[in-house]
Design a binder for these strands. Structure first.
Lengths: 420, 420
DNA sequence: TAGAGTTAGTTCGTCTAACGACCAAACAAA
DNA sequence: TTTGTTTGGTCGTTAGACGAACTAACTCTA
C-alpha cells in the first residue's frame, strides 16, 4: 500500500481552458473540493476495487473527508459500491469501483479515407467501435463536417439508448489544430481554416456536452498515457506512423500543444538535406524518408492510394517476412531515418518513452532495433537520457481512443457531472 | 484595469519538488491560502504600485480576503505600504509595493573560464553582480565546488551585512544536470556525476535556504521569462550562444526539464550530415555548424581559447562591420545553420518566441534576419506558427540572472518566508 | 461462547479561511 | 455644507477539511 505523500508546497492552478496570459487564478473552497474529488476519482480508477479506508491511507486525506467525497461521487454516479471484503480480521470493507454504466466519452478520428468512432465508459472500457470509409480527402470541408456530425449523432443516440449520458466528444484530425479546436491546415484532407469544433457543436445543436478537436498525434499520446503500459510516466512522445508522421508531446504529465496548438510537427523536419521532395515543397523531410509513403512508393507498383494502405503495408510485411532483400534494405533505411528523428526528440525533450504508433507497429520487427540504436547513438545524454523506444499496443484506433481519453482527462481534472 | 477572471474548473496541483509518479496531491485550506498569497504577490509584482481595491477588483478575490492576504504578506515583509493616492474622487488608496529590502535571491553561473554571481531583491533588482575568472575547466570538480562555495559564502555574508535574508541559491552549469541538481555530464568542465547541489549545501553547512543546480540554458529561459520583454508569453525557447549551444524550454509557462532533467540538448542534433566533427564524437552537430567555436576557428588565427572568447568575438564583429567578405560569408552560413535548428524547435514545440542569447547577441545584425527567414521557410505552420526569433537583451549574465529568478519563481509559487 | 482485538466507516465538534453585507474614513464635486 | 465616491476594515456566515470519539462488524483465542 502506498504511503501518504502530502506536500506542503502546493498551488491551485487552472488546469485547462484558461486564456493564455491571464495568469494564475485565485482559489476558494470549491476548488479544494473539486481537487479532492478528482484525487479520489483518480485513485479509485487506478486502484479499484478499494475501500474508503484505502483511499484515506494512501492519499493522506482524513477518513471523514474521504467518506464525504465518496458520497458525493456516488451521488454523481461516478463511483459505485460493490461487495464487502471477506475472511479478514476486522470489520469488512465496502469496496468501491468506478461506475461504468451511466456515462460515455466519445472520440472520433477522421482521416483521408476512413473515420473511426469509439465510445468508452468511465473505466475506459470500449462501448462501441466503428470504422467506416469516409471521403475525407475528396469531400468539401462542409460535407466532411456534416458527415462527422452524422456519425456523432448516431453515437450519441446509441449511448442515449443505453441510458448513458455523453460527457464530451473530441475529434482527432491529421493536421494543425489551434487551441480553439479550429483546423488551420490539414493538407491531406485539403482543409484550411475550418472551425471544426465550432461547426460540429452547431451541427449538433447545443449538445449539452463539450465538443473539442485536436491533432491526431496529440490525442494518440493521450491514449498511450491512459491506456498504454506507462504507469507513472510523465514525459512521453507518441509518433504517428501513417503516410505522414506527427508527434504528440506529453511533458510533465500533460499534453503540451505549443503557443498556437501546432506543436509536434516533426514530419517536416529536414532529416536528409537535399533528399527526396516532400509535398510541403521542401526536401528530405522526416515524413518522406521515414513515413510510409516513400516506403510503399518503392515497394508497391503503381503508387500508393490512401484507401489501399493497409493491404499494401501487409504486402510489405509479407515480403519482409520472406526475406526480400530490397524490402529489408528499405526498411533498414527507414529505420535509420526514423531513429534520427527520434534522436532529435530525445535530445531536445528527454522523454522517458517514445512510442511508435500507426503502421510502425506492424513494421516494428524490422525497424525498432535499428531506430533505437540510431537514437541512442545520437543522444548526448548517456543511454539516451533514459529514453526508451517502444511500440504502441493500441493499434490504429489510438487517435480515436485518445480523443475519448481527452474527455476522461477533463473529468479526471475536475469537470465532474452534476449530481442527480 | 483587468476584469475578474475567475474560472470554475481549477485543480490544486503540486507545482514543484514532488517525486514523479506520485500523482496529484489532495488539497486543504492551507493550500488555498498559499495559492491566494502567491496570487496577490504576483499581482503586486506585475502591477505595483497598486491598492488593495485594485487587487480585489482584478483578481476577483473578496476585498476582505485581499486585506487579510496583504496583511499576511506585510507580516512576512514581502509587501510594503507606500504613500496614499491624491487628487482622486473618494477615499485615497494606500498603495502597495514589493518590499525590496529584506530578502535576496542568489544566482551563480559557472563556466569553463569564468564565474558570475548575482543577487537580486524581490523586485528582481540587482543587488550585486560579480564576474571573475574561474578555472572551471582545469580544476577538479572538488576544487571547483570549493571555489563556488567560497563565492557563495561571500555573497551570503554581503547580503547578511545588508540585513537581508537569502531566500535561496541556484547554480547554473553548462551541462546535463539531473532533477536533483546533480551534474551528470559537463564535457567542457570535465565533470561527470558531481552532486553539485548536495555538495554545495554541505559546504555551506546547513545554510537555511535551498541550494539548487540546473542547466544554464534552462535558467537563461527563466531569466528571459522574468526579466525579458515577453509579457504574457507562456511558450518560449532560449538558446545559449557560447562555444556550445543549448536550449531552455518553457512550455505552458513553466520550465520543462524532461524525464531526467536533460531536455534542451539541441547542440548535438545533427544539422549537416557528414559535416565537421564534433567533440561529442559525431559530425555536423548544430554546435559545430552554428556554435561560436567553428566560427572563431576559421576567423581567428591560432585556434580558440575559452578565456579569450570575448575579444575574439569582438574581432569578428569588427571585421563584419568592416565588410570582410570571408567573415560575412561565415556568419551567413552560421545563420543558415542556426535557422535550421530554430526551425526544428519551431516545428516540434511551436513556441511563441525563440530568444538568442550569449554571443549571438553581438552577432545578431548579421545573423538574425537570415536565421529567421530560414526558420520560417522550414516551419510547416504558416508564418512559423506565430514563432518570433528575437535577441536577448540580458547580456552574458542571463544564466546567473535566471538562477536568481529560479529562487524568485519558487517564492512566487508559494514557498514564502515565514512571518517575523 | 464470551471476550479481546482489529479494521471500517460515521458522527460531531473544531477550525481555517473565503465571502457578503455593512460601516466608517477620507476625499472631490456641487 | 452636502452629496457622492472610493477605500479598507469589521462581523457574521458558510464551506469543508480535520481529529477524536464512537459504532459496526468481523476474526481470533481462550
Amino acid at each position: 500500500m502506498m504511503r501518504p505523500t502530502r506536500n506542503g508546497a502546493q498551488l491551485i492552478t487552472n488546469t485547462q481552458g484558461s486564456a493564455p496570459g491571464t495568469g494564475p487564478q485565485p482559489a476558494d473552497f470549491t476548488d479544494v473540493r473539486a481537487t479532492n474529488l478528482a484525487v479520489v476519482l483518480r485513485f479509485v480508477r487506478e486502484n479499484a476495487p478499494c475501500s474508503r479506508a484505502d483511499i484515506a491511507a494512501s492519499t493522506g486525506l482524513n477518513k471523514a473527508t474521504v467518506s464525504s467525497l465518496v458520497a458525493d461521487l456516488i451521488d454523481r454516479r461516478l463511483l459505485r459500491e460493490t461487495g464487502l471484503t471477506e475472511n479478514r480480521v476486522g470489520r469488512p470493507a465496502t469496496m468501491l469501483v468506478l461506475d461504468g454504466s451511466p456515462y460515455a466519452a466519445v472520440g472520433i478520428e477522421v482521416n483521408v479515407d476512413y473515420l473511426t468512432a469509439v465510445a468508452v465508459d468511465l473505466k475506459g472500457e470500449a462501448l462501441l467501435s466503428w470504422r467506416r470509409a469516409f471521403p475525407g480527402g475528396s469531400a468539401s470541408s462542409g460535407q466532411a463536417v456534416a458527415g462527422i456530425a452524422g456519425v456523432a449523432r448516431r453515437v450519441v443516440t446509441r449511448m442515449t439508448k443505453e441510458a448513458r449520458q455523453v460527457l464530451g466528444l473530441t475529434v482527432a484530425v491529421p493536421g494543425l489544430v489551434d487551441l480553439n479546436g479550429s483546423v488551420r491546415l490539414a493538407p491531406n484532407m485539403g482543409w484550411r481554416d475550418v472551425d471544426l469544433a465550432g461547426d460540429l457543436a452547431k451541427a449538433l445543436r447545443d449538445p449539452g456536452f463539450p465538443v473539442l478537436a485536436d491533432n491526431d498525434a496529440n490525442l494518440g499520446a493521450l491514449a498511450e498515457l491512459r491506456f498504454g503500459p506507462h504507469v507513472g510516466v510523465r514525459d512521453l512522445v507518441y509518433l504517428t506512423g501513417e503516410i505522414g508522421v506527427g508527434a504528440g508531446l506529453v511533458l510533465d504529465g500533460r499534453l503540451r500543444r505549443g503557443g498556437a496548438g501546432f506543436s509536434g510537427e516533426i514530419g517536416h523536419i529536414e532529416i536528409v538535406p537535399g533528399g527526396p521532395p516532400c509535398h510541403c515543397g521542401r526536401r528530405g523531410c522526416l515524413e518522406v524518408v521515414a513515413g510510409l509513403g516513400a516506403l510503399l512508393d518503392r515497394t508497391v507498383p503503381g503508387g500508393v492510394s490512401p484507401a489501399e494502405l493497409e493491404p499494401e503495408i501487409d504486402e510489405v510485411v509479407q515480403r519482409a517476412e520472406a526475406g526480400d532483400p530490397v524490402v529489408l534494405d528499405l526498411l533498414d533505411t527507414l529505420a535509420g531515418n526514423l531513429g534520427r528523428g527520434v534522436g532529435i526528440v530525445a535530445n531536445l525533450l528527454n522523454p522517458e518513452v517514445v512510442v511508435l504508433g500507426g503502421y510502425y507497429v506492424k513494421l516494428a520487427p524490422w525497424i525498432l532495433a535499428r531506430a533505437e540504436q540510431e537514437m541512442l547513438g545520437r543522444s548526448l545524454a548517456p543511454a539516451g537520457g533514459g529514453c526508451r523506444l517502444v511500440v504502441s499496443g493500441l493499434g490504429y484506433g489510438a487517435a480515436a481512443l485518445g480523443a475519448a481519453a481527452r474527455v476522461l482527462d477533463s473529468v479526471d481534472s475536475g469537470r465532474l457531472p452534476a449530481p442527480a
